[in-house]
Structure formats: structure tokens, C-alpha cells
């Protein structure tokens, strides 16, 4: 029970190194499993795998199919095919889109920045506003402002993302004309870098808010509950018995403790957020991976779909890493924290 505090500093360095090593191992494992999964999926798809890879809309001719069979070694045993596939994934070769006639990695890299901008903005927006609003609600539990926030978050939580996006377009673009409805930037106009930034930002508002809304609702409710729970813990009584003011108790003792479960959940929700980006990008014609997904679905372009699947999973792992780092920053007990 008694852990000597001396030497904790040295242990900490080792712990961090081990954590990074653990993450790297997990990362590679997840990538390999997902790649295997994708492989199995294509195998399970009805029809000729070569035809599947080429896209089912019938654009492929015999010569191309032969090329695909050769490239993927489709005439070799399944296990060899899997080996080749995994090796390609590990060397960052995601294959070739026969429909778009470009390497998948090129297609994805082209679209990745827009998706990163969208998901990153939405994630931070949801997390920070959720924590802020949840704290307000938790501290005013039972008052009308708390009830109002609760009702709003309940409604947001029940909204389909695509519909919320469309309704915002209807209100803010069509009716009020405040914000652009579609795209990433105004096309065909030359502007300075600052003006361009503002332009992108104004295009970003509606998609980011639509994507963030549901998570904002989740984090608000979670933070509210967490604040209420922490406020009833013993060490808050200690703080009151010390003679601290209410504001000092909130900032010094309640907030940090209350944020922890929200950060944990935010990490777990990262995959849902990334999935939501697909829908939001479709609604707003945001030229990111989600939009690419939609196009790939429409054309049944499997190499692209599989590549996106892999890259999006990696994005989730990265977001997990970020939330984990935040958690470690707040909580000194990292080494003793259970994984769930």
C-alpha cells in the first residue's frame, strides 16, 4: 500500500517510455487486424474478387481483370494472398483505384487535410463546449438553466447528423444567407492568405457544428453528472472544512476530477465521430475522406473503401492517443489506472 514517493521521477520516465512502446505495438496490431479484416471482407463479397476490386458497375474489361488478378496474386493460395496484402499495408501501399485510375494513397492524401480539419475542429469544439456547458449545468443542478441545457442536449442527442446539417443549411444559408452551404472554399476567386483562411473558416462553421452537436450533447450531460458526483465526494468536504471559497473549490478541486470521465468517454467516442464525418462531408460536399467514401460507395470502388477504412481507423487511434495524453496530464495515477 505504501508506495515510496522517492524515485517516482525515474519510474515516471520508464512508464512513459513503456506506454509509448505499448501504443506502437497496439497500433501495428490494430492496423494488421483491420487489414486482415478488410481482406476477408473482399473475399466474402459475392462474385469474382477481381471484378469486386475493379468495381461492380461493369467498367472493367478482361485485360484489366487479368492485371488485377496478377497484381493481387489472386491465383495463389489464400494465405499467400493475405501475406502479400499485409506486407503492402505495412509498406503504406494501399493499392490502386481502377475506377479513378490513381493510387489509393494519392487519393486519400489529397483528401486527408480537409477531414483532419473538420474532425479536429468538431472534436475540440464538442469537448471544450461540452465541458463548459456541463459544468454550468452541474453547478446549477435543478435550476431552470440546467433544465434548459438538459432539454437541448436531449434533442441534439436524438438528431440524425445529416438532417441537422440540412436544417442548418436551410436556416443559415438558404433563409438567412449568413454562411456558405457547400464546399471547402469559394472557387474561382483569388484572395490573400488571410482572406483565404477566413473563407475556409466560414465554410467550416456549419459542417463542424453539425458534426460536433451530438457529441457536445453527450459531453454536456456527462460533465454535468460528473460535476454533481464529484461535488459530493469526501475531499470536497475537506476543502469546505479548510474554509475555501466556492469558486476556489470548483476550480481547484471539482473541475479536474470531473473532467476525467469525460476525457475517457471522448476517447471512446472518437471512432463514432470519425464515422459521423462521412455523413457530414456528404451533406456539405466537404472534399474530405468522407466525401470520397460516398463517391466510392456509389461506384463500389473497393480499393478506395478499404484504404479509407484503414486510414480512418488510424485516425481514431491517433485521437485515442490524444485523449490518453490529456488523461495522463491530468491524473498522476496513470500507472495504476485500469484499462477500462
Amino acid at each position: 500500500m505504501t508506495t515510496s514517493a522517492s524515485g517516482a521521477q525515474g519510474h515516471r520516465g520508464i512508464a512513459v517510455a513503456l506506454a509509448i512502446l505499448g501504443w506502437a505495438a497496439k497500433f501495428i496490431a490494430v492496423v494488421l487486424v483491420i487489414a486482415t479484416f478488410a481482406f476477408v471482407l473482399v473475399k466474402a463479397a459475392p462474385g469474382d474478387p477481381a471484378q469486386v476490386m475493379a468495381g461492380q458497375t461493369g467498367a472493367a474489361d478482361e485485360r484489366m481483370l487479368a492485371q488485377i488478378r496478377q497484381e493481387y496474386g489472386l491465383d495463389k493460395p489464400v494465405i499467400v494472398q493475405l501475406g502479400t496484402h499485409l506486407k503492402r499495408v505495412l509498406t503504406l501501399d494501399l493499392g490502386f483505384s481502377y475506377r479513378q485510375r490513381q493510387p489509393v494513397s494519392t487519393l486519400i492524401l489529397e483528401r486527408l487535410p480537409a477531414t483532419l480539419l473538420l474532425t479536429g475542429t468538431a472534436f475540440l469544439l464538442a469537448l471544450f463546449s461540452g465541458i463548459l456547458l456541463g459544468t454550468l449545468a452541474g453547478l446549477r443542478a435543478g435550476k431552470w438553466s440546467d433544465t434548459l441545457l438538459t432539454v437541448i442536449s436531449l434533442i441534439l442527442y436524438a438528431m440524425p447528423v445529416f438532417w441537422l446539417g440540412l436544417m442548418m443549411v436551410l436556416l443559415f444559408s438558404v433563409q438567412l444567407g449568413w454562411l456558405p452551404a457547400f464546399g471547402y472554399q469559394t472557387i474561382g476567386v483569388t484572395m490573400g492568405p488571410f482572406a483565404r483562411m477566413l473563407d475556409v473558416a466560414s465554410h467550416l462553421v456549419l459542417p463542424a457544428v453539425s458534426l460536433a452537436a451530438i457529441y457536445l450533447a453527450i459531453y454536456t450531460r456527462l460533465m454535468r453528472a460528473s460535476v454533481i458526483e464529484v461535488a459530493h465526494q469526501d475531499f470536497i468536504k475537506t476543502a469546505r472544512a479548510k474554509g475555501l471559497t466556492q469558486s476556489r473549490i470548483i476550480t481547484g478541486h471539482i473541475l479536474r476530477n470531473a473532467i476525467l470521465p469525460v476525457v475517457t468517454i471522448a476517447g471512446m467516442q472518437a471512432s463514432a465521430l470519425v464515422g459521423g464525418a462521412v455523413v457530414v462531408e456528404t451533406v456539405f460536399a466537404w472534399p474530405g475522406l468522407g466525401r470520397l467514401t460516398y463517391e466510392a460507395v456509389m461506384q463500389r470502388d473497393y480499393p478506395v473503401l478499404l484504404g479509407i477504412f484503414l486510414v480512418m481507423s488510424v485516425l481514431v487511434i491517433v485521437l485515442n492517443l490524444v485523449t490518453d495524453a490529456i488523461y495522463r496530464l491530468i491524473d498522476p495515477r496513470v500507472t495504476t489506472r485500469a484499462t477500462n
Binding site: V30, A272, G275, V278, T293, I308, F309
Partner: peptide
């Protein structure tokens, strides 16, 4: 839970 469910 790591795999984006919707994309899957």
C-alpha cells in the same frame, strides 16, 4: 470500438 463503426 477503435474501428469507426459507421464506416465498417
Amino acid at each position: 470500438q477503435t474501428i469507426p463503426g459507421f464506416i465498417l
